[in-house]
Amino acid sequence: MNGFLQAFVNGLTLGAQYALMALGFSLIFGILGVMNFAHGAFYALGGYVAYLVDKTLGLPYALAVVAAVLMTAALGYVFELVVIERRIDDHLATIVLTLGLSLVVGASLLAIFGPRSVDFPAPLTGTLRAGGVYIPTARLMIIVVSAAAIAGVYLLLYRTRLGNALRALADDRTIALAQGIRPKVLFPLAFGLATGLAGLTGALVTPIFSLAPFVGEHVLMISFLAVILGGLGSLPGAVIASILVGLVESFVGFYIGGSWAPLMLFTAVLVLLVVRPTGLFGAKAAHV
């Protein structure tokens, strides 16, 4: 029983982390139609910015997280505006462009921080004891902040003028343009918002897992899974599927062990992509 709850909390932590990543990834795909292969790189970048601000400059961790979000959001904004925007309708080209960015970011981190993982200890070290289960405070914080961020994105998209415009753009770009909504202004914003979410994830999560230049690759991979399971471009789908993936990874890892969890997940996704490319949760593919 104890093990079960432990696995559940761990799964939820993983799920929350994947959800933040998948949310941003899905946002970009849903609104811009771009598959962002650099999403993992933004995760790593967020981790390193937080590390730099927290450890090297000695500023409070909360400030480090904010700095990570701002940096990754700004880089995403500029990259969309200057690079992606010019090939926005060519799906294969945008894949290669984001791959290029992921190489550049990864290599830059490698050049600056070296290949070894850096020591970035979790800012919260205590544990919370509830009914015989020990929950590390750091994990709880990840779950809470992730939930808050997801709620924030939901409110932004469904309760504000900007969100309304973004969803209109995702639905029909031409007709949105005829409402005075300018994709050239909003696409970089959406991209920056999503990469900021990846940066936030990195800043939150890398202290309790690990921080090395290419840590993003694994998280990107898992986000792919969640996004495909949830239906490409569907935000609620991405969040629900992420939490499912986190729980499955944790439970299968706990009870069966080793590489079986990812293998089962990936195989399931492979089958799902072929049989039902719109994902588990219906036909809302490619729309927010």
Binding site: R161, N164, R167, A168, D172, A176, A178, Q179, G180, I181
Partner: peptide, 29 residues
């Protein structure tokens, strides 16, 4: 659009995934 020209396009092309209210509001961006 900002200067006051608006369109109901051929085939209507409402934002299919947006609610009726969000469709109306999108015109007032």
């Amino acid at each position: 659009a900002r200067a006051g020209i608006r369109i109901s396009p051929e085939g209507r092309r409402v934002f299919a995934h947006l609610s009726i209210e969000d469709n109306i509001l999108s015109g007032g961006y």
